[in-house]
Computed example of a mutant assay.
Amino acid sequence: MNIFRLSGDMTHLASVLVLLLKIHTIKSCAGISLKTQELYAIVFSARYLDIFTDFISLYNTIMKLIFLGSSFLIVWYMRRHKIVRRSYDREQDTFRHFFLILPCLLLALFIHEKFTIKEVIWTFSLYLEAVAILPQLVLLQRTRNIDNLTGQYVFLLGAYRALYLVNWVYRYFTEPHYVHWITWISGLVQTLLYADFFYYYFQSWKKNEKLHLPA
């Protein structure tokens, strides 16, 4: 564990807390893509299959439980909560997210570090996480007018992955034989998808204006 990994984890956790604050306290999921949240639920379910079989540390187990539990809780709120679900913009959130799952699974079957069920499913989770934000970004481009909590949520989610990139660079230079090309490339792709959003987020912050994305 280093400061960059810890910062990435805390930023990721902060993004979840911001989204739960919006949904639970304000009782609104306006501007949030259910498609992206469902993809994240699949990502964490696939990645954390070892949660009850391989103990790494108490910290690791707690973080896994938080991300697993929160992802399904958010999906439940958006689908089932009688107040929150009313604010879901179903007409705008039309990205066919399930078409991302099969290509990621096929890619994991052909490009992996070791051909075992556990390793293939874990690799699948990396590929799917890299593109899971796409429905959310498309929704933001369609709605254009983004409230502060939604903007902060997406920014923190992107910042978490960017911090993980720094963590990997740090570990490459400080740990012998630390090479994980699949993880690195997937993380880089995921971070690049946020580049446009980051630009407009910082522009709005600098000008003290409401965040707008171009159509």
Rank of each mutant, 00 (worst) to 15 (best):
Thr150His: 07
Phe202Gln: 03
Gly8Tyr: 03
Arg161Thr: 09
Tyr160Arg: 04
Arg96His: 14
Leu49Ile: 09
Met10Gln: 06
Leu106Cys: 10
Leu134Gly: 01
Phe52Tyr: 04
Arg161Gln: 12
Gln152Phe: 14
Asn2Asp: 15
Met1Leu: 13
Gly8Met: 11
Ala41Cys: 13
Trp184Ala: 14
Gly151Gln: 08
Arg80Leu: 07
Gly187Trp: 00
Tyr160Ala: 07
Asn2Pro: 14
Phe95Trp: 10
Gly69Met: 07
Phe155Ser: 04
Leu100Thr: 05
Phe198Thr: 05
Ser15Tyr: 12
Ile182Leu: 14
Leu193His: 10
Leu156Ile: 08
Val166Gln: 06
His180Gly: 00
Phe115Cys: 00
Thr25Phe: 15
Ile32Leu: 14
Arg80Asp: 05
Ile146Arg: 04
Phe110Cys: 01
Gln92Trp: 12
Ile146Lys: 00
Phe4Cys: 01
Leu211Ala: 11
Leu13Lys: 02
Val166Cys: 13
Ala132Asp: 03
Asn148Ala: 07
Leu156Ala: 13
Lys114Gly: 05
Ala215His: 15
Lys118Tyr: 15
Ala215Lys: 15
Val154Leu: 06
Arg142Gln: 13
Leu163Ala: 05
Val84Tyr: 10
Leu73Arg: 03
Leu65Thr: 05
Leu134Arg: 03
Ile62His: 02
Met63Cys: 08
Leu126Thr: 01
Tyr199Gly: 01
Phe67Gln: 01
Leu139Arg: 03
Leu192Asn: 03
Asp50Gly: 06
Tyr77Asp: 05
Lys206Arg: 12
Leu49Met: 14
Thr61Gly: 02
Leu109Asn: 04
Cys104Arg: 06
Gly158Asp: 01
Gln37Lys: 08
Leu68Cys: 09
Phe173Arg: 01
His180Trp: 06
Gly187Cys: 04
Asn167Ala: 15
Arg86Gly: 03
Lys82Asn: 11
Arg79Phe: 13
Met10Arg: 07
Gly8Ser: 14
Phe55Tyr: 15
Val166His: 02
Ser7Thr: 11
Leu13Ala: 02
Val43Met: 01
Leu126Asp: 03
Asn148Gly: 00
Ile111Ser: 06
Ser33Pro: 04
Leu192Ala: 15
Phe99Gln: 09
Val120Met: 08
Tyr199Asp: 01
Arg90Asn: 09
Ala130Gly: 08
Phe202Arg: 02
Val120Tyr: 02
Gln141Gly: 14
Ile23Thr: 07
Leu39Trp: 07
Tyr200Val: 00
Ile83Cys: 04
Lys207Tyr: 12
Arg171Ala: 13
His180Val: 13
Tyr194Lys: 07
Ser87Thr: 12
Ile26His: 07
Leu192Ser: 12
Lys27Pro: 12
Tyr160Glu: 02
Thr191Met: 07
Thr191Glu: 07
Ser87Asp: 12
